[in-house]
């Protein structure tokens, strides 16, 4: 999906209806737009995936940037509550709105640091009772 050829015009759309609001959603390969976009926005939480997107030159594609802007509806209700990886997803969605981050994420060093720090933070924030881990 991410590799689809896109035109700038295709991104200006309304967010898909959340599940339960109407059963008559068109399906794309068996999935609704809601499901696909939810999956995609959460995949953005993975630094390696971002690097993959950058390596395919998508992060400099104006249409893709517009799509990233459009995806920000995930940071608002009623969509917010469907995100099961809230931290990295929303953080990266926010970072991806910045030109500099979109350019820098191509660097393997940055990806590796994001990966390690993200994994460490994912564990550390649960054990504030262990100050020695800081």
């Amino acid at each position: 999906m991410a590799s689809d050829p896109m035109s700038v015009n295709s991104s200006a759309r309304e967010p898909p209806a959340p599940p339960g609001s109407g059963a008559d959603e068109p399906k794309y390969g068996g999935y609704t737009r809601f499901e696909l976009e939810l999956e995609f926005v959460q995949a953005l939480g993975n630094p390696l995936y971002l690097n993959h997107l950058a390596s395919r030159k998508l992060l400099s594609n104006p249409a893709f940037i517009a799509y990233l802007d459009y995806l920000q509806y995930w940071s608002r209700p009623p969509y917010l509550k469907y995100i099961t990886y809230p931290g990295p997803t929303l953080k990266n969605l926010e970072l991806l709105q910045q030109e500099k981050f979109r350019q820098d994420i191509i660097s393997p060093d940055l990806v590796e640091r994001l990966r390690l720090e993200g994994m460490k933070a994912g564990i550390d924030w649960h054990r504030e009772s262990f100050p020695s881990t800081a």
Binding site: A2, G30, E39, Q42, A43, P88, T89, G118, M119, I123
Partner: peptide
């Protein structure tokens, strides 16, 4: 390893992969 994001496996098994 604990990954606080969807791993590559999950991305590869999901709907986007089916679409692709």
């Amino acid at each position: 390893q604990f990954h606080p994001w969807p791993t590559e496996d999950k991305v590869r098994m999901g709907g986007m992969a089916a679409y692709q």
